[in-house]
Design a protein around this nucleic acid. Structure first.
Lengths: 284, 284
DNA sequence: AGAAACTGTGTATGTGCTACGCAGTGGATA
DNA sequence: TATCCACTGCGTAGCACATACACAGTTTCT
């Protein structure tokens, strides 16, 4: 979801009218599939390079894989595999996610999974787009762009809190964008349309808010670790010992900057960010 | 560096006066070291759990490991190992970093490295704290907290741009805080002291800014991938095909939200964030 | 019926981290 | 000066994991 920005910011993307476009992709896909399966010419085993085929990855995410016509009925679906992966990641984190683990849970061999997903990275991408599901309906939020964007941010926050591994999953490599990811982006952009911001500004604003949500997720993710206490105590010792090297930090601690609080961690940053965007809206 | 927040936000940290504290940690360390080396009692091989010993990790980062008194002179130092790792990560990314790779480069066996660093995670932590080096001197920046914080952010941005793998390295698991990390945090907190913000607000503000820097680093990191074009084209196809499902996005694209630009990617968000913080300063 | 497409599986390969124990080294100690 | 043993670097080995490949069984098309 995050990658959306990097992607879109990326190249000079040719925007084409939504017509006469379906044909060639529709055709292109089976062709690519066959080439993959048949391993035609056997040629280079792709040394150790990125083996991901964008076409296949995207087809998987958008559910556009062609149904097999012959052969035994598949025992599973990509969706089921993804859901199983999600359960594991939710329960034990992304590190616990392995192909073998998923296979065991589903009572199949490890290699059987590769009939449904091209590889682990694609599985993870599918998992992400699956947990994202549909964005909230912001049209019911009243009060203009600001409450709407805030509602969007909090909804996003809820998703990230519920499935913190999204952060790691999307933080690794380039990610294939699934429909739900795009839908979330679209929802946020829509929320900002009533403002008089430029399209680019709208987009940057969305990314800014999303970045904050991700940032805070990262925070609480670490915080929730079980073994925190040991680290906390020892690091505190360390800092105390070198207190004179870090005067401002020492003062901040003395003033209680790190005392526990009940406030929603998202609040501070979200308020600042929205305030900053509001300033831009008014000035522009 | 990021973890700083999660860590400090974490527990109710007892702040002690910097005195009579060095003794027990100083003593505690060799003890822990011996216990590690001697593998006393052999007891549980720690099934498959986090084997990291906070004491050892922190001692490594803070350069407080005790010098060996006897035996052959070590061929290397932890610092050299870290620097070698940094070179690899700078040149080919974090994925290319493996113990064997570092060992080859240093002309030693893989296992020799484990005489200097407890394991790969600790090596990465050490690498991070090494590249961070010292924060910039912000006292020379005039104009109050705002220009100073902005300078801090841009300095931070420079570091992240020069070593994008920091993002991945710090994005994974809990990280041991090294002295340089703390120094950066301290510098930012110091910059904010002239404002009348609460200690907690100062800290939250720093984290907010840092989050944005990290967020943007993530963006350009993806963007810089070489194989972008394929993905770009295919994803564009995909979105074009489903344009009607994403009206706001379609409009944004039409208005050129994603056309290439020369502006510093950091600008938009940084301005918003600083503006938001300024609003808080004035209101409070 | 037979061919073709497709399924799940067993086996094997490669990479990567790291535990363990050995042989040599050289500063500390007698 | 002779000795010892804390230390070094190294070879071997084990384990986890992703994934390639070929095979045998199953279903549908011709």
């Amino acid at each position: 979801m995050y990658v959306v920005h990097s992607f879109w910011t990326g190249g000079n993307i040719p925007w084409q009218s939504p017509s006469a476009r379906m044909a060639d992709v529709r055709q292109g896909h089976p062709e690519g599939q066959a080439g993959e399966t048949g391993k035609e010419a056997g040629a280079v085993p792709a040394n150790r390079e990125s083996k991901r085929d964008p076409r296949t990855s995207l087809a998987l995410l958008w559910g556009e894989a062609d149904r097999p016509r012959r052969g035994p009925k598949p025992k599973l679906t990509p969706s089921e595999v993804a859901r199983c992966g999600i359960e594991i990641a939710d329960a034990e984190g992304l590190e616990a996610l392995s192909m073998q683990r998923v296979a065991e849970t589903l009572r199949v061999t490890t290699m059987a999974l590769y009939r449904y997903v091209p590889g682990k990275p694609d599985l993870v991408d599918l998992m992400v787009d699956t947990v994202l599901s549909d964005p909230p309906d912001l049209t019911r939020v009243l009060g203009g762009w600001r409450p709407r964007l805030e509602a969007w941010a909090r909804a996003c926050w809820d998703v990230y809190r519920a499935h913190p591994w999204i952060l790691t999953a999307t933080g690794m490599r380039r990610q294939a964008m699934g429909p739900h990811q795009v839908a979330w982006l679209d929802a946020a952009l829509a929320a900002l349309e009533p403002s008089r911001l430029t399209a680019r500004q709208r987009h940057d604003a969305v990314i800014l808010v999303l970045g904050h949500v991700r940032s805070l997720t990262h925070q609480v993710l670490d915080y929730d670790e079980e073994s925190s206490t040991d680290w906390d105590r020892l690091t505190t010792d360390q800092l105390t010992r070198h207190g004179e090297r870090f005067p401002a930090l020492t003062r901040a601690v003395a003033e209680g900057a790190f005392a526990p609080t009940d406030e929603d961690p998202l609040n501070f940053g979200l308020t600042c960010v929205l305030e900053g965007i509001a300033a831009l809206v008014e000035s522009g």
